[in-house]
Design a protein around this nucleic acid. Structure first.
Length: 119
DNA sequence: CCTGTGACCGAAG
DNA sequence: TCTTCGGCCACAG
């Protein structure tokens, strides 16, 4: 079930779990750059759980100060549903990121990687 | 404790 | 380039 502030309590932004750590890290993506689900997962020390990153962002309540739109799929693809992707495209363009045919143009240069977690 | 559910990823064809 | 297919695992019931 998606995160529901009415059931799980308000302002539960950053919890102790994986989702909370995702939110924390996504908050640090600079304006005008994008990260991938995979790189966020890797930045948290678990490179194989990109899907969980997607789930963590999908469960974000609307209006939270977390730039979820700066997270894209591998290769710069927008992997969200059609409706969300349109919103995401708009927000990214507003920050100077060009999107064409569901892809971040010049993705390699835009790709931001979180500092690697300490062993 | 066990199960269903994914805003993913990379390899293969 | 595109589509399909397994593997992946946190979280809520």
């Amino acid at each position: 079930m998606p995160y529901d502030p009415a059931r799980h309590g308000p302002q539960r932004l950053v919890g102790p779990g994986f989702h909370g750590r995702v939110h924390e890290l996504v908050r640090t993506i600079p304006v005008g750059r994008v990260a991938t689900y995979g790189s966020i997962a890797a930045g948290l020390g678990s490179p194989r759980i990109a899907r969980q990153v997607g789930f963590a962002l999908a469960s974000l309540p609307a209006g939270e100060p977390i730039p979820w739109w700066r997270v894209v799929g591998a290769g710069g693809r927008l992997t969200t549903g059609a409706t969300t992707a349109r919103t995401q495209t708009k927000l990214l363009r507003h920050e100077g990121v060009t999107i064409r045919v569901g892809r971040v143009v010049d993705f390699a240069a835009r790709h931001w990687r979180p500092p690697t977690a300490a062993p």
